[in-house]
Design a protein around this nucleic acid. Structure first.
Lengths: 203, 203
DNA sequence: CTTGTGTGATACCGATCGGTACCAGCTAGG
DNA sequence: CCTAGCTGGTACCGATCGGTATCACACAAG
């Protein structure tokens, strides 16, 4: 235990150490929003967790809604990075890329534990269609589907749109199922299911 | 227009007419919780919409959390009724039953429009695992999966558990996808996808 | 040294939250 | 007729919400 007083020091950083306040706030937002839900976390709690104050938070983001949008932008960037990684690792092997993406989703299933997908959860918490975070979610989902469709097309699957849509169903369904705990061995089932979709579409 | 002053009369019922207060409150809760999210609706708003008061609401339910649980119990009962209906309509035809359930889910997709599944949304809004509504959700999901598994077994599918889990993935994935609007023609895709699952498992 | 900027801290704002107490009026049962 | 119980209406409680203002202090650049 390298930091015996991590939580003890009163006004000091609960966060790693001395990242700039903006990063600390985003990290804290990531943890708290995902764990407790957007509406379940106050700005004061985020500032406390980041080892800073509400004033600094509002100086950087102006609004809680804007902070939520920034947080989801970062989460979306993680997915983009995952797609980039599989494309870099298996160039000209679209089937391997699709399997790589599926493996990434399986990974997030465990790390995300019982709290599900941030996008799905945020969508449930933000019924207002004009909320700034909604646009982040929608463009992310659209981009992800487009990229998946491109992979399916490159793999020579019959009807790539259908295949990508089905894979998306499986991804979302797996995230939800692991959240509500109704289905066991979700990871294995996801991989097997995606494989079946590929086979059925002519892989 | 039979009721020209439906919204005009101040303290009068916005609800249908003269159902007992408890039913009116549950109806109002159904509408508002689903449309705006649990945490986005105050008890005062529910009471107003039901044409009654907070006092009456707390007299009947004691707690907002209890009201949420009661609401989800009703939603779950709708699903149970749908399963009952298909079993009654196609006795000894498990495949037709499964297709009937899928058709029911497709129906809910449109009625539920862009606000998704109440269970998924509520799960996102209630991170507390001890919340009374969580138990309602979990037992409902478990029962639904068990019933689906039984249908798959009765249909003679190889590995009924796998088939039921996959169908569940498709259901949940479809609900989420229609909510975030990333995929189009969700209903058709759902039906086709379920059919493929049945075929692949030996239907 | 001085100036300027961003920080942490605190106090405060109006609004709304879940929940309670109290009261007047209606209706049903004796 | 009179009592009992449920209703709707309102006022209120403490707590928390998102957001703003103010202030002293640190530190880097001129």
């Amino acid at each position: 235990m390298p930091e015996p007083e991590e939580e003890a020091r009163p006004g000091r950083a609960t966060r790693v150490a001395k990242l700039p306040p903006r990063e600390r706030i985003l990290d804290a937002a990531e943890e708290l929003f995902h764990a407790e839900g957007i509406r379940g976390v106050g700005v004061q709690a985020v500032a406390d967790r980041a080892g800073t104050t509400k004033a600094a938070l509002y100086r950087h983001f102006g609004t809680k809604d804007a902070l939520v949008a920034q947080w989801l932008l970062i989460v979306a960037a993680d997915y983009v990075a995952a797609f980039d990684r599989v494309e870099e690792r298996w160039p000209d092997e679209p089937l391997a890329q699709i399997r790589g993406v599926a493996a990434f989703v399986v990974d997030t299933l465990s790390t995300v534990s019982h709290r599900g997908c941030p996008f799905i959860n945020s969508l449930a918490e933000l019924p207002d269609r004009d909320h700034p975070a909604r646009q982040v979610i929608e463009t992310h989902k659209a981009r992800q589907l487009a990229r998946l469709t491109a992979m399916c097309a490159a793999a020579g699957l019959t009807d790539p749109e259908d295949a990508a849509a089905e894979i998306t169903f499986v991804f979302e369904g797996a995230q939800v199922s692991v959240q509500n705990g109704s289905v066991d061995r979700v990871g294995e089932r996801l991989v097997a299911f995606v494989e079946a979709v590929l086979v059925r579409h002519g892989a």
